[in-house]
Design a protein around this nucleic acid. Structure first.
Lengths: 216, 216
DNA sequence: AAGTGTTTCAAACCTACGTTTGAAAACTGC
DNA sequence: GCAGTTTTCAAACGTAGGTTTGAAACACTT
């Protein structure tokens, strides 16, 4: 039994500590001591710290992306146009449906996604685009489809704008939620933030084009 | 002459390397070797790496924030309501007006801002809110004022959404601009991205409230 | 019970880093 | 041109990190 437990203990601790402090700032010693396993276990089971980082992402992104891909598959059969809100909510619902391994798991999930983009771990970006790029491209294709008439240039940038909104707000969510409550009496949780994102992003995507591409 | 040149050479190199690789990932040896100064110079002139990081931010944020504060001051005299777009453009114009110390300086500027939020350097966040929190609060007050009728809860989160959009898109701008050109034939520059943000953010801020706070 | 492969463990290795030191060099004011 | 201050420099210090090692402990088959 203690065979795979070591691996999972390491992944659990690494996931949490990475989310809290970042990759470079989290030492293998901190992880193994939190996980109550020997220091050498990481290199034995994962090979290196880099591969551990990738394993942490793989563990929750594999099922998540597979599920998302399945939903996109089902949708593509009936190809009637979807509203922007529907496409956005598809993703929100998928994220909220992540079965929590521990309380506050979605926050950790999102924080890791944020770190993946903001910490410059080249190997991680390569790993993520290689593993999940196709599914993400498919999702954004659907999103494009829900914004007919919008120039690709605006669509391109706006998809990064919404990505930034989501990652930024989510990855700082613990702190931001606390401030919201303390200073403004706003009693939200992670789910509430994600619900609030939808109308904001939908309206942003629907905004008039910045300027007509080939304005005559 | 070489008195203050050492300090500036260090700041120049640090600014660039921090923006490229992050704080923890940039060693003092990398900085001093790039700046062609002695390793000990950083500790001599700045005291520590932490203080160097703060100095890098201070050098461009001091004049920037002073200018922004001045503009807000001028505006507050005539207190007629401003449109959302005007408030957003005020900031965009201030950013674009940063006099570039080198080509691509705005990208570096924005990338550093992104790092300030995403890397967990407690001392830096403390330094930034202490030094510039008042001005920023003033700006967001103006932004709130341009969205009458929007519940504070939505306003609160949406201000983080736009912050995330800006920081995310800008801090990855070099890479994203290259992809835009290569894969989509979009020939934008930093200024174009910032201009594209305005209608997106304005529409997002104007979107209907997520749900009425005390819906009867 | 012996043998084989797997997993754990304490210890060490080696590198990279931030910082300190003490002397040399450069600069300043007189 | 000299005393005093400031700045530069090469070298070293101490620490913390990722990784490796070789033996011990364990598990599983026959």
């Amino acid at each position: 039994m203690s065979r795979s437990t070591t691996v999972e203990r390491i992944l659990d601790s690494a996931e949490l500590l990475f989310a809290e402090h970042g990759f470079a700032e989290t030492s293998l010693r901190a992880i193994t001591s939190d996980a109550k396993v020997n220091l050498a276990a990481v290199n034995y089971h994962f090979g290196s710290k880099k591969e551990l980082i990738q394993a942490v992402f793989g563990r929750f992104l594999d099922p998540f992306m597979a599920g998302l891909d399945q939903s996109l598959e089902n949708l593509s059969s009936d190809s009637k146009m979807m509203e922007v809100e529907e496409v956005l909510e598809l993703l929100v619902n998928h994220i909220l449906a992540v079965k929590p391994r521990r309380p506050n798991d979605i926050a950790i999930f999102m924080r890791l996604m944020g770190l993946a983009y903001t910490q410059n771990q080249g190997h991680l970006k390569r790993f993520l685009t290689e593993s999940y790029g196709a599914t993400l491209a498919r999702y954004f294709e659907k999103l494009y489809g829900s914004c007919p008439g919008l120039p690709v240039s605006d669509m391109y940038w706006r998809s990064y704008f919404i990505l930034g909104s989501a990652i930024f707000a989510m990855s700082g969510s613990e702190a931001l939620l606390a401030i919201a409550k303390r200073d403004h009496g706003i009693d939200d949780d992670i789910e509430a933030i994600m619900r609030r994102m939808v109308p904001f992003m939908a309206a942003g995507l629907r905004a008039h084009a910045t300027y007509d591409e080939g304005h005559s």
